[in-house]
Amino acid sequence: MQTETLEVKLKTAAKFLDRWAVETTTPEPERLDVVIDATDLLAAVAGMVKIQWGYLATITGIDLGVEDGRLELLYHFCSGPAVVTLRVRIPRGNAFIPSIYEFIPSVSFYERELIEMLGITIANTPNTDRLFLPDDWPEGVYPLRKDFDINEAQTPRNRKANGNT
């Protein structure tokens, strides 16, 4: 794998992911973005792991906004200079995605970040405990959503300290 050039790497990935791709773009020379359906995610990730294409760098979760009504998940795979991103869009109201833990065990903390930051339900992820946020953070308040209101995020302790119960 090390000796392959950037083009070959991207071509391999593009060819391999083609069967699931809804849309394939190359926004930058070293990148390949593949939009796939949420239902194809497990198959695509399993395939990437199977052909040993790079490693999962991280999962980025984005809120596309209230008007758009969708959340976007970006699974970044890196191999040398090449970055392949699997883009999955899920509805904001019913944010649900299967866990890829069975293929990549180190993914647990990225998934837990998505759970608490964006309010995404992730099926079959081994641990759904709090990751970043305090233990007394209110339920159902997701800071990385665009309609997040800082006043909702007052933890009981903060409220007590600020004198407004």
Binding site: P27, E28, R31, A57, T58, T60, L74, H76, C78, V83, T85
Partner: peptide, 18 residues
């Protein structure tokens, strides 16, 4: 408008920015 990915070798290893 747009998006980009930047990776850098920090002293501790790969730093990833989206």
């Amino acid at each position: 408008a747009g998006e980009t990915i930047m990776r850098i070798e920090a002293p501790r290893g790969e730093l990833f920015y989206y």
